[in-house]
């Protein structure tokens, strides 16, 4: 249902994505792994056009966009198909938790305020923030802010939610609460693409793992297979460096 083909992107002379093809089925949770600078975040940002690819085709559901020829309206339409959870949360700082979640529904989806309110409250309760509806982002911990970010993404009921290293900016003790919320919504069958450094989490939650390096997809497959029996040498090296030694776990 999501298909990327031939996505290329350069910043100046530096080619960050050198032709990425990726398919994601409905309800699938895809984890993108790779060393920093491998282009994984750029790829994610290309899917909702926060980064404009130089060429390639993005299709989400029945909507197709050719990166070489499109208008502003197409970009707008593309963005409505997805939602994003950011590394730095990026909540609207002058709005309460509830207003953050309602914003997209009211302004973009033209849902009535009363209905948006009801749906938003339900979602905030779902991520465990029923008691913080009227708190401003500055009054929330990082983990709480990120959970508001997730509720904001869920509210739009998008075809796919894009997670850009959702726990990288969090204190270690707050990572768990965010991961458990993501795990919970993964079980509900929402399509997700997650760029992450949490290997254990990726292995557990994802149905499909993609390993990127140097702007290309080096290897992809089922998590069990990719983590235990990586085929490519580059993947082996990467996994060896970041996973704990056998027989020893933290």
């Amino acid at each position: 249902m999501i298909a990327l083909s031939g996505i290329k992107k350069s910043f100046g002379k530096n080619e960050v994505l050198s032709g990425i093809d990726l398919k994601v089925n409905r309800g699938e949770v895809v984890a993108i792994l790779g060393p920093s600078g491998s282009g994984k975040t750029t790829l994610l940002r290309c899917i909702n056009y926060l980064e404009k690819p130089d060429s390639g085709v993005i299709s989400i559901g029945d909507f197709k966009l050719n990166c070489r020829q499109h208008g502003k309206k197409d970009v707008h339409a593309l963005r409505q198909k997805s939602a994003m959870v950011f590394q730095q949360y990026n909540l609207f700082r002058h709005k309460t938790a509830l207003e953050n979640v309602m914003e997209g529904l009211v302004v973009v989806r033209k849902v009535s305020k009363a209905e948006a309110r009801e749906r938003s409250i339900a979602l905030l309760e779902k991520v465990g923030l029923g008691a913080k509806l009227n708190a401003y982002p500055s009054e929330l911990s990082g983990g709480q802010q990120q959970r508001v970010g997730i509720a904001r993404a869920l509210a739009l009921n998008p075809e796919v939610i894009l997670f850009d290293e959702p726990t990288s900016a969090l204190d270690p003790e707050l990572v768990g609460e965010v991961l458990s919320v993501i795990r919970q919504i993964a079980e509900e069958g929402i399509t997700m693409i997650i760029v992450t450094h949490e290997m254990g989490f990726a292995q557990e939650v994802a149905n499909h793992v993609v390993f990127m390096d140097g702007g290309v997809i080096v290897e992809e497959g089922e998590p069990k297979q990719l983590f235990r029996y990586p085929k490519e040498e580059r993947t082996q090296q990467f996994l060896k460096r970041i996973t704990p030694e056998a027989g020893y776990s933290i």
Binding site: L50, E103, R152
Partner: peptide, 24 residues
């Protein structure tokens, strides 16, 4: 980042400017 978040929820440039950037 907040502007990007506004785009990500589907706002247009003017909407993001008026609703998110301007008040702050």
């Amino acid at each position: 980042g907040q502007v990007e978040a506004a785009y990500a929820v589907g706002m247009t440039g003017p909407q993001a400017f008026v609703r998110i950037v301007l008040p702050q």
